[in-house]
Design a binder for these strands. Structure first.
Length: 824
DNA sequence: ACTAAGATAGTTTTT
DNA sequence: CTATCTTAGT
């Protein structure tokens, strides 16, 4: 290691902010306290040993930690210690004294990831982590930049951050104001379009002509511009602006950008595969350096876990890292510390079906004869699926496994319900992750609207939300009048209200009500500076009559809502001011879960990313659901590949046990649909996957199709296959388990090298856990009259291997497996 | 201004 | 089927 003490910074070049925020930034100028690890690290160096925090890292991890100068891309597979590398790297930078804590920019996507990073860095470096104000999400760092330089972006520092709900309401107003039919052109859809544009870094002038024409008969661009103008008058931002405004500012004010170049000596990015174009642009701007100056950027990501393409994430960002950052070092982390070799083998084999990946192969030293293969189960319908999963969980529970160590990961949230229902009847504790959130509840949003308006009187959306809540007799007519007046004079609605109560414009009753509202707000605004914010919050909710409204409400949920309001006030205590609290709310919309309760987690595959469980259940592996039909329709091959990555994410969440389920019948949109097993099942390797025998063999209908070959106990599993693929698998099996990958997973996948021109030919062997029997002649013929247990009688109109297309008398045309029908 | 019946749509989600 | 939103009627 070179002597890093040559360029120890003697002072922290804290830029003199152009617009000082009211609240000084905490802790920035404090020099790095060299306590704890850092001190020990240096002591260790003296005796020629590695610092403590480096021990226990494998060579690749250590490389990723120690290569702190110059661009580094860490390709970190699932469970390879990505967060550890990131946090240790920060500790290492600090220990090397190459930067002050305040000179490190560390970006994550989610608040959760940011929290975890902070926690773990704290363990390594102690209090120094408190001096790292530039560790956070893209958006929270964006807000920080924007509050400092608000004027350069046409805003005032106290600007409001609007959530999606506010945005949609605002756009709806604009659409209606333009005289456009808001039913034909839904505001929600346009909000999504704007979001998409912003993800790509497009302002109204930059959007493609085709996009502009696609909405409201060519008014797309106009509306987008009107929206931005409106945000400006509201002194508000949407989430996209939190990135776009800083980008624009950096481009227009190179001097400001330069300050940050000097400031951020080291930049780290987590989950790089999830960055969208705007985030990428933002990063490029901050990371760029004059020729010869190293760009100390370290991005950590996994192209195989890129599952947010639909939300604007560009996997390309990770693929082109080397081009963008010349001289970049690419380090692959492939040693997995999480899962058994069976789980890893199954996941690796599945993901190998994707093209256009950088190509990593996870491996583990872990090999335990007790490790069970991944289990594939079949069920008749989703009800049976839930029942069987419940039984499996109860059995594990009897074996003293914690429910906290188990998770059910579904593709779509409607799948959750069946499990919830089942667990309620079983009395099994469960927790749903990612459901409706605390801050999205009606009463919370109402209360927040009051607070927002007190803090920022230009917040018309907040005004409109609560002006007649509780009921004050201020209906549509009054609001429209206020709205028109405000727009005509270009003043906020609260100010408009203050004006209008002086006139005879309104009816006496409305005028009186409005007068009360306005004087209340003026009084509360006066209290803002000198009253403790929790106290002020209580005053507002009391005096506005909002709490009374719920006290007088006799409905069942009213007491709960009052409880939530109390909870809201309680949670405010942790913040120093009402503004600080509101900012937190806008950015951190998540509520904490009760960790004390032992409960099974139910969540979507998307929200499971980054988590791990001893036992994972993956229900619903059926064509149309997973891969989802819409992903296929709209995303084509790349859509399918993203679905496959999602499957990969699901499998790699499991540490020891993994159960996959598919059903033959699922109720979609109220009616029963016959479903086919997911193609992903076909893509699993036999060496690591078992088809589980179910006592109830397919809900009691043990015949034909998947049922016949896989659940018929008379015939041993290994004999029931006769397809070429299976034979190939058989032949390869011995070889595959004792392959030349040493102690790596037994899957025989050729390694795909990074930096070569695309993936090489792969040999994907040993598949066929659930291969469709396309080669076998069907025992049915077109025109046959058949009976199906769920759909009744029908005629066969098409045959494709073991998949029959049947025109049912009652249920219409459906595709079903031949095992489920009988000739009549 | 509020309630009740009708229409409609229905992946994934963070900030 | 069902949750949510809209509209029509009181």
């Amino acid at each position: 290691m070179s002597n890093g003490f040559d360029d120890i910074p003697f002072f922290d070049e804290e830029p003199a902010p152009r617009n000082r925020p009211e609240r000084p930034e905490q802790g920035t100028p404090a020099p790095a306290p060299m306590g704890g690890i850092a001190a020990r690290a240096m002591a260790a160096r003296d005796v020629g040993r590695r610092p403590d925090y480096l021990s226990g890292l494998n060579p690749e991890q250590r490389d990723a930690v120690e290569t702190i100068d110059g661009p580094v891309l860490v390709l970190a597979g699932a469970g390879t210690g990505k967060t550890r590398v990131l946090t240790t790297r920060i500790a290492h930078i600090l220990a090397s004294a190459k930067a002050f804590p305040s000179q490190i920019l560390a970006v994550t996507f989610t608040n959760k990831a940011a929290r975890e990073m902070k926690e773990r860095v704290g363990v390594l470096v102690g209090g120094a982590v408190e001096g790292m104000p530039w560790m956070g999400t893209f958006h929270s760092i964006g807000v920080k930049l924007l509050r400092r330089h608000a004027e350069l972006c046409g805003l005032r520092s106290a600007f409001t951050i609007l959530d999606t709900d506010d945005v949609v309401r605002l756009i709806k107003q604009l659409i209606q104001a333009e005289g456009i039919d808001d039913k034909r052109w839904p505001a929600k859809q346009f909000a999504q379009m704007i979001d998409g544009w912003k993800n790509k870094g497009f302002g109204p002038a930059d959007i493609p002509e085709g996009d502009a024409r696609a909405f409201a008969n060519g008014k797309g661009r106009e509306l987008y511009a009107a929206y931005q103008a409106r945000l400006k008058t509201l002194n508000a931002c949407d989430f996209g602006d939190l990135l776009l405004h800083p980008i624009k500012m950096f481009r227009e004010h190179p001097d400001v950008l330069k300050e940050y170049h000097q400031k951020f000596r080291y930049i780290l990015v987590d989950e790089y595969q999830d960055t969208n174009t705007a985030q990428y642009m933002w990063l490029r701007l901050l990371a760029q350096r004059p020729k010869g100056v190293p760009q100390n950027v370290c991005c950590v990501g996994d192209d195989d876990q890129s599952i947010y393409g639909w939300r604007g994430a560009e996997v390309d960002n990770i693929l082109r890292f080397e081009k963008d950052f010349i001289g970049a070092k690419v380090i692959k982390l492939e040693r997995n510390y999480r899962s058994t070799e069976h789980i890893l083998g199954a996941a690796a084999h599945l993901i190998a079906h994707n093209e256009g990946r950088l190509g990593k192969t996870l491996f583990t030293d872990r090999s335990d004869p007790d490790d069970r293969k991944v289990q594939v189960h079949a069920a008749w319908d989703s009800e049976e699926e839930a029942r069987a999963v419940g039984e499996e969980i109860e059995q594990l529970q009897r074996q003293k496994h914690n429910l906290n160590d188990m998770a059910i990961l579904v593709r779509a949230s409607f799948q959750m319900r069946e499990f919830e229902d089942r667990f309620v009847t079983l009395g099994l504790n469960y927790r749903v992750i990612g459901g409706p959130r605390f801050y999205e509840r009606l009463e919370i949003r109402d209360a927040l609207a009051y607070f927002r308006l007190v803090c920022q009187d230009a917040d018309d959306l907040a005004f409109e939300r609560i002006v007649n809540t509780p009921k004050r007799g201020l209906g549509d007519t009054t609001i429209r009048a206020l709205h028109d007046y405000a727009r005509a004079r270009d003043v906020p609605m609260l100010a408009a209200a203050a004006d209008m109560i002086e006139t005879d414009e309104l009816k006496a009753k409305a005028r009186k009500s409005l007068f009360d509202v306005v004087t209340n707000f003026h009084r509360w605004q006066g209290l803002l500076e000198n009253t403790p914010h929790t106290e002020l919050a209580e005053i507002i909710l009391e005096e506005s009559g909002y709490t009374d409204m719920w006290k007088n409400d006799k409905s069942a949920e009213a007491p709960g809502r009052l409880e939530n309001l109390k909870e809201l006030i309680r949670s405010m205590e942790q913040f120093e001011s009402m503004r600080g609290f509101l900012e937190h709310i806008a950015l951190v919309m998540d509520a904490e879960t009760n960790e004390n309760l032992d409960a099974v987690s139910i969540m979507t595959l998307h929200s499971a990313k980054g988590l791990e469980f001893e036992t994972v259940f993956l229900p619903g592996w059926e064509e149309g659901l997973f891969p989802h039909q819409r992903a296929l329709d709209e995303g084509g091959r790349s859509g399918l590949e993203e679905e496959r990555r999602l499957a990969y994410v699901g499998l790699t969440r499991a540490k020891r046990r993994c159960h996959i389920w598919f059903v033959s019948n699922r109720r979609i949109h109220g009616l029963w649909q016959s479903t086919l097993p997911s193609r992903f099942l076909d893509e699993l390797p036999v060496t690591h996957v078992d088809v589980a025998e179910t006592e109830q063999s397919y809900g009691g209908y043990n015949r034909g199709g998947y049922g016949q070959s896989r659940f018929d106990k008379q015939e041993p599993f290994t004999n029931s296959y006769s397809t070429p693929g299976w034979k190939r698998a058989q032949a390869n099996r011995t070889e595959a388990t004792r392959d030349n990958w040493g102690n790596r997973s037994g899957v025989s996948i050729e390694r795909i090298g990074y930096g070569e021109s695309g993936p090489k030919a792969r040999t994907i062997d040993g598949e066929l856990v659930a291969k469709s029997k396309i080669d076998e002649p069907s025992k049915f013929a077109v025109g046959d009259r058949v009976f199906h247990i769920k759909f009744g009688n029908g005629n066969i109109v098409g045959i494709e291997g073991n998949k029959l297309t049947i025109d049912f008398d009652r249920a219409g045309q459906k595709k079903v497996l031949d095992g489920f029908v009988e000739r009549v």
